[in-house]
């Protein structure tokens, strides 16, 4: 791609049309991508924005135009705010815990220990395990009487709660699974970043008499900041859209305790056939994720912590 042509520095004016004659060719090559993305991504996304202005059950021959009423109804709905709260708790919990654990595991596995490769694979396995399968298995593990979790707790004399049926514990249980699935990914990215830190820094610090904690605090952590930023953004975006785990483990229950936005959207659209309202939920979700992403970009640029 970067052929001879790019060696001439293009002037600002010619940025969009180096020569007018190249446009048809460019369009021709872009056409397949544009057609596929347009048909399967952009058109449905815009259509959904349009639908969010209607009340429609997907079956009735008429759609009632309601303007912004779906959005108003959404903002007035206690279920929506509960769902937003649950989503923020889930996203915050999974992001922070998986970040801390991922870093810890990465630092440990960066040491020359025996069976290092095996540990790395083991920690990464949950990432590639299908979510639905993991959800089903964890559901068994969390079973109040038969599950490994409560049997283990009973072994040390504790009575575990009825995890997935108890409104005060269900979200914590789902977060545990979310973290379990995320740690491996964070670990791999952190490992790569750790190996990019020159040994010389540590050697210099040792000469100056810095202990392991001081080295970690003043060399490792700051140099990992760009990686941490990257992992926070991707984890938040991921966690905001969580659906399958909740669908399999709790169906949003008990009492809305795990009713994350993704599941709330599914309920409205596909169980209640409220397609207009569900589209409004989707756009509110989009706005939230967009805001998080923009804030993140601002922060990385402002922080000046590197590539970001």
């Amino acid at each position: 791609m970067n052929g001879v042509r790019l060696q001439k520095t293009p002037s600002k004016a010619s940025r969009w049309g180096r020569t007018l004659g190249e446009w048809p060719a460019a369009l021709f090559f872009l056409l397949p991508t544009v057609a596929v993305l347009g048909t399967f991504n952009f058109y449905p996304a815009l259509y959904s924005l349009y639908l969010s202005l209607f009340e429609w059950n997907g079956l009735s021959p008429t759609r009632e135009f309601v303007g912004l009423a779906n959005y108003a109804r959404l903002l007035a709905s206690g279920e929506f705010w509960n769902s937003l709260r649950v989503t923020l708790l889930y996203a915050g919990g999974v992001t922070l815990l998986a970040l801390a654990l991922g870093l810890g595991v990465a630092v440990l596995l960066n040491q020359p220990i025996r069976g290092q490769a095996v540990y790395r694979v083991l920690y990464f396995l949950p990432v590639i395990t299908p979510t639905v399968a993991s959800g089903v298995v964890w559901k068994y593990l969390f079973d109040p009487t038969q599950g490994v979790v409560n049997r283990g707790l009973a072994g040390v004399g504790l009575e575990g709660p009825s995890w997935l049926s108890d409104p005060s514990w269900a979200l914590a249980a789902v977060v545990v699974v979310g973290v379990w699935k995320r740690v491996g990914f964070n670990m791999v990215v952190y490992l790569a970043a750790l190996q990019g830190i020159p040994r010389a820094y540590y050697e210099a610090a040792q000469l100056d008499g810095a202990g392991p904690w001081q080295q970690f605090r003043h060399i490792t952590l700051p140099l990992l900041a760009p990686t941490t930023f990257f992992l926070v953004v991707t984890a938040l975006i991921d966690a905001f859209q969580v659906f399958d785990l909740v669908y399999v483990m709790t169906s949003g229950g008990p009492l809305g305790g795990t009713d994350v936005l993704g599941y709330y959207l599914y309920r409205q659209g596909f169980r209640y056939s409220e397609l207009g309202f569900a589209s409004a939920v989707a756009y509110v979700m989009f706005a939230l994720i967009f805001a998080v992403t923009v804030a993140q970009f601002r922060l990385t640029r402002g922080g000046g912590q590197g590539e970001g």
């Binding site: 059950n57 409104p167 229950g253 008990p254 009492l255 809305g256 309920r267 169980r271 209640y272 056939s273 409220e274």
Partner: peptide, 20 residues
């Protein structure tokens, strides 16, 4: 009724509130 699935979820939620 057309909105039975929603009605059912609301009812079940309050039954759970009472059972708990």
């Amino acid at each position: 009724v057309a909105r039975y699935p929603q009605i059912s979820d609301v009812f079940a939620r309050y039954v759970q509130e009472a059972l708990l």
